[in-house]
Nucleic acid binder design. Sequence first.
DNA 1: CAGCATGATGTGATAATATATCAGGATGCC
DNA 2: GGCATCCTGATATATTATCACATCATGCTG
Lengths: 170, 170
Amino acid sequence: MPRLAVSAIPPDSVAMAIHHDHDHDVSSGAALVAAAELALVTSGEQWTSMRAAVFAALSGFDRPASAYDVTEAVSQAQGRRVAANSVYRILDLFVANNIATRVESANAYIANAHPGCQHDCIFLVCDACGRAAHVDDDQLSARIRETAAATGFRPEKPVVEVRGRCAACG
Amino acid sequence: MPRLAVSAIPPDSVAMAIHHDHDHDVSSGAALVAAAELALVTSGEQWTSMRAAVFAALSGFDRPASAYDVTEAVSQAQGRRVAANSVYRILDLFVANNIATRVESANAYIANAHPGCQHDCIFLVCDACGRAAHVDDDQLSARIRETAAATGFRPEKPVVEVRGRCAACG
DNA sequence: CAGCATGATGTGATAATATATCAGGATGCC
DNA sequence: GGCATCCTGATATATTATCACATCATGCTG
């Protein structure tokens, strides 16, 4: 499978790279899980079976998934009812450690395809199919931060999510 | 009161204009309400007393307000219980007609200080005080749309909300 | 004017998303 | 093993959002 800078979704049908000139360990499947585990452990967090299950469920979706979607998927996988609040806790932890991202405009979460690499994320969210493509454009992100900073604002976390129609949905 | 391109909040303590070289009818108070009414009526929508009440309540907040905040404020003002779903309907209408904007990362709404003028909005949302400054930077917005379009995505509505700390909160 | 069409609002229910609290269990460390 | 700490489960509740349908207001039309 080709390694590309834009983790479009579905994960195996990526098409193009944009303003992204450095290499990542873009991962999927087992490699992605391993990378996530490494990132979390490196931060001094535990990689428990529940966390593994949540991450597996999250990365199994081909589009941003709500906490309840993930809860349902984990429940299925475990053959028992898991509580939503546990999933929330874990998703929050994932977001804090950059192995997942929250898509604010969709109240949903998506696994980060390249944990360990810090970027301001730009998501292209399709209003038709719900899928989200992830674009890194450090130059553009920098412009956004600069623009904010120019007003005396101290930017912490830019939320850039372009709603629209993906190529497939026209 | 000075007319400025950046509608910082609180509304009477604006400080700077950025990449914004055209004039607006930036409005506040009664003038803002009149501008909103005009914008709505021009679109063929009615300006009912309920809509006026919702707009007044919304523009009375000095920061993005949740639909329930607005519901509460309108209820107070009217001396009766108004239903949240009515408020949602009206806020949706406002957003559709560009006299209010939804701040996705805060699940909240904010009155548009210059209805009738189309921009992609950029909000600087303070995580400490909850206030949001509104920046227009057409050049930056264009870059964002271009970046999205370059992937075959058709951008409809960019959501750009920079979370961080405002100058006042350091 | 009566009747009707249309759009706005009210009512009531419910769904979806998110957080709080606290007890008990697992884990790591010594 | 024992202790401290972190993690999870259970339960409750808060917040945000939507739906279906009844009612009301307004203006048009015959």
